[in-house]
C-alpha cells in the first residue's frame, strides 16, 4: 500500500553567516494510512522543522536542500506555492501548539469554519454551515449551534484547541500534522484533547504526524515513534518497543530519564551526561558519540545508517550485523539489552 506520507533522505539547511547549518540531515520515514506517527526529540532536534518542511512553510532562510517528500505517492516538496497552499488546506490539516495562532480573533468561529469548508468543497452556504456545526459537535463542543457565532476569545483553552482540530479536519485531509497540540494545556484538559485527536482521526482514517517533546503523550497516542537527535534519525519503530526496549543508546537514556508514575520513586533518575549539540557544532561521526557509554572508534569517524534492531530500526553501529562492534563494547551493551547479540526470540511483537 502506498504510504500516506513518505519522506526520503530529507535534508533541511539553514544558511547563516557562520556557514550552512543542517537542521535535518538525511531523514527518512513513512506514515501508513490511518497510522499515528509520533515525532519526539529535545528542543532543537528538528521535529518541528520536519513538520514545516513537509507543509512547505519553512521559515526563511531555511530551505529543503535535498530528498523527497511524497504525499500518497505524489511529490510535494517542489510544488509551486499556489498548489502547495491547496495541498495544505485540503490534503494536510495542521494543528499548532497555541490555538490562538490558528484562529483569527476578529472572525466568528462559524465564519472561519465555513470559509475553510467552502475553499475546498463545492457546497452551498447553508450546507457548509451545517457541516461546520456537525464538525463542532464531533469535536465535543456543547451547544454547537450557538457556539458557531462566538469569537475565539470566548472559548477556553481546551475548547479553542477543539475548534482548531475541527478546522484542521474540515476538508477531510489525508494527513494531520499536530505540532505540540497539548503543550499549552493543563494536564486534565490535555488528556481530553489527546483522546479526541486519536478518535477523530481514526474515525476518518486520517494519518497523523504528532510532534511533541512529551514521551508520555506519544506513548499513549502513537502507533509508531520516530526519535530525532540533532536533526538526524536515532530510532524509529513501534511505540511499545521503542518505549520498553529502546535499541539506540540515546533512546534508552531518554526513556530512563523520564520520571514515571510507576517504578521506585526513591531511585535516582537515569541521566544522560551533557546536552544535545548545537547545529553548528555537531561532532563528526555519530552525533551522539560524546554522550554515549558505548561509543568506539568507528562512532567518532563514521555516520551510522539505520540498522534493523529487534522490532525497531536504530542508527547505531551496535546493530551493524555485517561489521559488529568490538566484543568488549558489544558485551557491555548486551548487558543492558542493546545490540546485535540479542536473540530475535527476545523481541516482543
Amino acid at each position: 500500500m502506498t504510504p500516506t506520507l513518505s519522506v526520503r533522505n530529507l535534508r533541511v539547511e539553514i544558511p547563516t553567516r557562520r556557514g550552512v547549518l543542517r537542521a535535518i540531515d538525511d531523514l527518512s520515514f513513512d506514515i501508513a494510512p490511518g497510522e499515528v506517527l509520533g515525532m519526539v526529540g529535545e528542543s532543537g532536534a528538528g521535529k518541528s522543522i520536519t513538520g514545516s518542511a513537509i507543509i512547505g512553510l519553512l521559515e526563511p532562510p531555511g530551505r529543503v536542500a535535498g530528498g523527497e517528500i511524497r504525499l500518497a505517492g505524489e511529490r510535494i516538496d517542489h510544488l509551486p506555492p499556489e498548489r502547495m497552499r491547496h495541498v495544505r488546506g485540503k490534503r494536510i490539516g495542521m494543528i499548532f501548539q497555541d490555538p490562538l495562532t490558528s484562529l483569527n480573533p476578529l472572525y466568528r468561529i462559524g465564519e472561519q469554519l465555513t470559509e475553510t469548508i467552502l475553499t475546498h468543497e463545492q457546497l452551498s452556504g447553508r450546507a457548509a454551515r451545517d457541516k461546520a456545526q456537525r464538525l463542532l459537535e464531533e469535536v465535543g463542543i456543547p451547544a454547537a449551534a450557538e457556539r458557531l457565532s462566538a469569537y475565539p476569545h470566548q472559548f477556553s483553552g481546551g475548547m479553542r484547541q477543539r475548534v482548531v482540530i475541527a478546522l484542521a479536519l474540515a476538508a477531510d485531509p489525508q494527513l494531520v500534522i499536530a505540532d505540540e497540540p497539548t503543550t499549552a494545556l493543563d494536564v486534565s484538559v490535555q488528556a481530553q484533547i489527546i483522546a479526541l485527536l486519536k478518535r477523530i482521526c481514526a474515525d476518518r482514517g486520517a494519518s497523523v504526524m504528532l510532534i511533541t517533546h512529551d514521551m508520555g503523550v506519544i506513548a499513549e497516542t502513537a502507533d509508531r515513534v520516530c526519535v530525532l537527535y540533532a536533526g538526524r534519525l536515532a530510532e524509529i519503530g513501534p511505540v511499545r518497543d521503542v518505549v520498553k526496549h529502546p535499541q539506540h543508546p540515546y533512546t534508552r537514556g531518554l526513556m530512563a530519564a523520564i520520571p514515571s508514575l510507576a517504578g521506585d520513586p526513591d531511585e535516582k533518575l537515569a541521566q544522560i551526561p551533557g546536552s544535545m549539540p548545537r547545529l553548528g557544532a555537531i561532532p563528526p561521526g555519530c552525533a551522539f558519540n560524546p554522550r554515549c557509554d558505548f561509543a568506539f572508534d568507528r562512532c567518532r569517524a563514521e555516520r551510522p545508517d539505520a540498522y534493523p534492531a529487534g522490532a525497531t530500526q536504530a542508527a547505531c553501529f551496535l546493530h551493524d550485523a555485517k561489521n559488529p562492534p568490538p566484543p568488549e563494547i558489544a558485551g557491555r551493551a548486551s548487558e543492558v539489552g542493546l545490540g546485535v547479540t540479542r536473540a530475535p526470540a527476545e523481541v516482543p511483537q
Binding site: I14, T16, R17, R18, L21, A23, S43, G44, A45, G46, K47, S48, I49, G51, S52, L57, L58, E59, G62, Q97, D179, E180, R278, L279, G280, A281
Partner: peptide
C-alpha cells in the same frame, strides 16, 4: 515554528 528559532545561530563564544 519554534524549532526554527532554536536552530538559528546562537552566539558560540
Amino acid at each position: 515554528m519554534s524549532d526554527a528559532t532554536e536552530a538559528a545561530p546562537v552566539e558560540t563564544a
